[in-house]
Amino acid sequence: MPTPNPAALDFLLNRRSRPAKTLATPVPDNRALETILTAAARTPDHGKLEPWRFIVLQKTALLRLAAMVPERGTALGHAPEQIEKARLQYANADLAVAVISSPKTSEKIPEIEQVYSAGAACLALLNAALASGWGANWLSGWPSHDREFIRDGLGLADHEHVAGLIHLGTETTAPPERPRPDLGAITTWVDT
């Protein structure tokens, strides 16, 4: 018979991301963040390849990235409002962790499984932050998918991608509950 963990299940059934624009200081200090990252690093990793890594972006780094957004957005032909929205994602943040998908060469583990593992690390980091009492939100946005931006801004290698940017801070406004998926519409039971 399994041993339930009601507190953990209750957390998962009621977890709710906090909009990044509502997060403020204080942010987790290095010690608190190391605990969150340690929990995130326990994500499922088929083959034990560690096909992801973390880049902790503190305020100065976020402002540097924000300053890069307008030039890249203009070069890519984005509308001014898209550029400004992306710029503010970095400029208004106080702390974010970029989860980097960094697949390893493997004859046994397909690259797609390694990419999925990086996505799982994003969710594990998000949940660890929320479970620690911090507000957190998983974002991306066009700059995180622009090869030049991630190479020059984050130092990513050609085979690496941003799986997600996890913004962390103190919640200033409780978000309203939002509609959740209809379990019956998205679940198929197969018994034969």
Rank of each mutant, 00 (worst) to 15 (best):
Q82K: 15
S117H: 08
G135L: 09
Q89C: 08
V99A: 01
H78G: 03
E84P: 00
L125E: 02
S101I: 00
A118M: 11
L88E: 13
I109V: 15
T74Y: 01
S132K: 05
A136K: 09
K85F: 01
G77L: 05
Q82Y: 13
R87V: 02
N92Y: 04
W138V: 07
V99R: 10
G135K: 06
A131H: 05
G133D: 06
W142I: 03
L95E: 00
G135C: 04
A79I: 07
M68S: 04
S140C: 10
A120Y: 07
I112L: 10
N92L: 12
A129P: 00
P110K: 08
A93P: 11
S101N: 15
L125T: 03
Q89L: 14
S132G: 10
P103I: 11
A120R: 04
S132L: 01
W138K: 03
L123R: 02
L76G: 05
Q114H: 08
S102Y: 00
A118V: 01
L95H: 02
S106P: 03
G77H: 05
E107R: 14
A118F: 10
A121V: 06
I100G: 12
A96F: 12
G73F: 01
G135W: 15
L139A: 12
I100E: 12
Y90E: 02
I100D: 11
S101T: 09
K108T: 05
P80E: 12
E113D: 13
S106H: 06
T74C: 08
L76N: 07
P110Y: 08
A124Q: 02
L76E: 12
Y90F: 15
N137F: 15
L130S: 04
P103R: 10
I83T: 13
S106E: 10
R87Y: 07
I112Y: 07
R72H: 12
L126V: 11
G73W: 04
L95D: 05
K108L: 08
L130Q: 06
L76A: 12
G133K: 06
K104G: 00
L126T: 11
E84R: 15
P110H: 03
G135Y: 15
G73R: 08
P103V: 14
H78Q: 13
L88I: 14
T105E: 15
A79G: 00
Y116I: 11
A91R: 13
S102M: 05
I100M: 09
D94Q: 10
L88M: 10
V97G: 04
W134S: 09
I100H: 11
R72P: 02
N127M: 01
E113M: 06
N137C: 15
L95S: 01
L130G: 05
D94V: 00
L123Q: 11
Q114Y: 07
A79P: 04
Y116D: 11
A98K: 14
M68E: 10
A128P: 04
S101Q: 14
A136I: 10
T105K: 15
T74D: 09
A96D: 13
K85N: 13
K104Y: 06
L126R: 09
A128H: 03
S117G: 14
N137S: 14
A86R: 03
E107H: 12
S132T: 00
E113T: 02
E111G: 02
A129K: 06
L76D: 00
A121S: 09
N127K: 00
A96K: 11
L88R: 12
P110G: 07
S132C: 06
I100C: 09
A67E: 15
D94S: 10
